[in-house]
Structure formats: C-alpha cells, structure tokens
Design a protein around this nucleic acid. Structure first.
Lengths: 140, 140, 140, 140
DNA sequence: GTGGTCTAGACCACC
DNA sequence: GTGGTCTAGACCACG
C-alpha cells in the first residue's frame, strides 16, 4: 500500500498517515500481521521527520490498529472492538450525519448518494455476518 | 434551529458552528433567505467570544452558505453548486470512503451500516433531479 | 495537587505525569472541570521540556481523562467508561494478579496485604452504588 | 509451568518472562530448588532470541528469585526478603495505589474490586505469620 | 537494525 | 495567552 502526503492540506501530516492506514486496514489492503515500513524508512520515502511518522504510529498503536515491537518493527494488529454498543451506534450516527450533510451540500440526490456509497462499500472488508453484497476476493 | 457547543470536542468552536449551520441547511431546518442571529446575539447566547462567531460566519460566507448584507444581518444563501463535476464526485467519494472506514473500524456489518444511513438520510433535504454537473446559480 | 518527577526512575517522565494525574482523578484530588496548569507553566515548574508535558496531556486526553481546549487550557474531563464488560473484568483481573504477585514477593501475609489495601482504598473516589466503606468528605 | 509470550504487548519480551516467573513463584507453581529450562531450551520453545532469555534470567538472578549454578543450570532460589521494613511497606503502598487507581478508572465499585481481589488472592502462596520486618534468610 | 524518549526551538491555530 | 505540529538531533532500550 502506498501512502501519499498532501503538504497543503489543513489536516496535519501525522493525521493523514493515520487516516490512510486506517482506511487501508478497513479495505483489507493491509492485513493483520503484515509489517509496515519502519519509522526511518517511511520518514525517508515521504520526506518527513521521523518523529512525525512515530507520532502517527504511536496514535495507531494506542487505538489498537497497529502493534509495535521495539527492535522488530510495526505490524497490523488483529481486529477487535472493545467499546460498548451505545457508544458505537452514537459514533456511527454522527459520522453518517456528517457524510449526508456533505452529500446534500454538494447537490447530490438521495439516489446518487446511495449509488456512490454502495459502489465504494464493495471495496471494504466488512465483518462477518449479514453482509448483503459482500466483497468477492479473487480465489488464489 | 438551536446551536450547541461541545467544549470538550477537539473540533474548534468556530468549526462546530460552521458544521452545525451546514447541517441545518442540509436538513432544511434553515431555509434560504432566513435570517440568522447577529454575531453579538449568538455570542451572548452561546457564551462564546464574538471573534469566534465572526470567524464562523466569515467562513460560511466565503463558501457560499451565508450572505452578509451590511446593516441588515446575516442570511442563508440560495443554494448553488459551482464546482465542476469531477471535483464534486471526487469529494463525495472521499467522504464516503472516510465514512465507510469508520463503519468498518467500529465493527458494523455492511447491512447495519446501510440501515443506519438510510434511517438518517430520511431527515435530510435532498435535491430532486439527478443533476450531473451541478445546478444553475441564481442570476444576480 | 502537586506533581513530582523522579528523573532516576525507569518510568519515562511523561508516563509519571500521566500516572500521577490518573491517580489524582481517581482519588478525587482533581475534580471534573478543574483546570490543570498550562503546558508551559508545568514545564517551567517541573523543569521539563514543554513537549514532554504536552505528550503526557495528549495521552490523557486521548484516553478521556482530560479535555484540552486550545486557547483556554487543559481541564479534567467528566468520568465515563466506554469499554465492554468482559474487557473491563479481564483488565482488572490482570492488575489484581500483578499486585498480588508483588505482595507475595515482598513477603506480606494475606491479612497484611488486605489491611493495606483497605486502608488505601478509603482514600479513593469509588463509583456510586454498593460501596462498603465509602469516602467521607468534609462538609463545607 | 508454562510461559507464554504476548508479542503484541508493549511490555518487552524479557520483562514478560521476568513477570511470569515472579508470578509463578508467588503462586507456588514454581518451588524453591526447582530447575528451570536452560537458556537455549527456553529460547527454542518460546521462539525467542537466546539473548532475550539470558537477559530475563540475569534480571531474576540479580533480584534473588533465581540462582544460576554454572554447569548445572538455573534454579528457583529460596525465598528471602531483605529489604527494610519501611521500603517494603512503601512499595506495597505504591502498588496498592496503582491497582486502586486502575479499578476506579475502570468504573468498578469498592465492593466489586474487593470481590475480584479476594477471588484471585486465593490462588497465591501467602507467607503464614505476619512478619513485620522480613523473614530470615536461609543460612548458606 | 528497530522504536521510544527527551530536548530545543520554530511556526501556526484558537480564543 | 493557550495548545498543536513539525523539525533536528541526541541518547537509550530492545532483539
């Protein structure tokens, strides 16, 4: 997976990295156990200070997306959800409202919004259970 | 429409105000031409520095959500979408991806995510037709 | 509440600060809404780099113990528990085992250990409900 | 007794080994005089660098939990408590405070905390009398 | 080699 | 004034 930094963005560099790795994991582009580039390596390839990379990795470790093993490197963690039901729903609701606000503001119709969402949703890695359209993975 | 400030949020106050007014417009709670409270009024009722309110209004004016008519007050602008088709789609796609990432991270299934989204979508004010390139702007 | 740093400790400075503030909150020495010293202030009084203080505050904010409001300062957050029941129990069990191991290693008897624990427990701020000995607060 | 390494833990591997052996002794799963696996054996069975095992054993020997007899192997040492009364109490007090802080932070009530502690305490190997200043060391 | 901590100092956003 | 971000560079712990 390739990371890309927009130095012009209002989003801080370390948050851009956090967001991209979160998305990579959610899409299944990064699989549990997979090794990420080392702090120094990524620092060199993105032309960013090592501390900035470390900050992103630390953040992702604290929230459980990554495991870091000093001396070995940084790895994608096994998925797990620890927060309680209500908090989970509240958070999704807020995110949904924010997304819908943007869709309306951009002038999309209800149907257009849904079409886009469904199209993108197919690329993500949903938890087991009642997926309706699920993601097909190439057999190998 | 009532604005509510979450002082504990990491989102700056002026951005909270911007977001809530954007959402109010998207939901139809604020209609084009409607008058908003003055900077001083809102500053008093929210117990927030007037500069902060002014900053929010300036931001909303800059992006076309509000119109300030000197001496008269601040009004909700007529809806208009100016950005080009490509940029519009790209933005919605990015927002969709971010929303989907969060849904996956929170452990929801594809179905659960859709159910939540549809439920909330019903509360928003969608444009009717499926415009592909954005609507006409009011002649001025 | 007074913070004290042991520069000789194997525990990093920022973690010492985190631990002491967590303990202060758990004891009720720091109450929700209370303002903490600013990053620069604390940095001066502890003779520690501001970045180190900021790191401690960031950590405490991320885990929900503090709220930081840029431009205003850092405040003690309202208490809340979001993690699910099983994870909570597992964590307490691990901490209990670690504590008991230390007590045995130090050569205390079961009764001595209990006596110490009860004595200290009286100084903490337990959640509502079935407290047996509860903490009395001076009327004021 | 079986050792288990948690590669995802932020606790360094050698410290995990130290902690587990300490706990094993405190629980009575490892008895004085018992022989432990050699560095090389343990290194193979845990799939861990021999240096890491050696570091853990060295640490445990330094603090008196283990004895290395060159050419024979590594053995669990006879229990002994050497540190002075004051330091002993201070250490237990600190550990108790840390444990109580965690219990409060996790939202447990005083009663729940006690119940958990008592349940786990039953599995440990307590010294009988209430020695105030530490036990006699085996003559050698 | 890996990541973690700490310092020093600059610049920006927020209120 | 407040906290947040980023850089640069040093030193340590881990495997």
């Amino acid at each position: 997976m390739e990371l890309r930094i927009e130095t012009t963005s209002r989003l801080p560099i370390y948050r851009q990295i956090v967001a991209q790795i979160q998305e990579g994991v959610a899409r299944g582009l990064l699989e549990p156990g997979e090794k990420l580039p080392s702090v120094r390596e990524l620092s060199r390839s993105l032309v960013v200070n090592p501390n900035t990379i470390a900050k992103a990795y630390t953040e992702l470790e604290r929230e459980g997306t990554l495991n870091t093993r000093p001396g070995l490197g940084v790895f994608v963690a096994a998925p797990h959800v620890e927060i309680i039901r209500e908090a989970r729903e509240r958070r999704l609701r807020d995110k949904a409202d924010r997304f819908l606000t943007e869709a309306v503001r951009l002038g999309f119709s209800h149907e257009e919004m849904l079409r886009m969402l469904e199209e993108r949703a197919g690329q993500f890695q949903w938890t087991k259970g009642q997926n309706t359209s699920g993601r097909k993975k190439d057999p190998e």
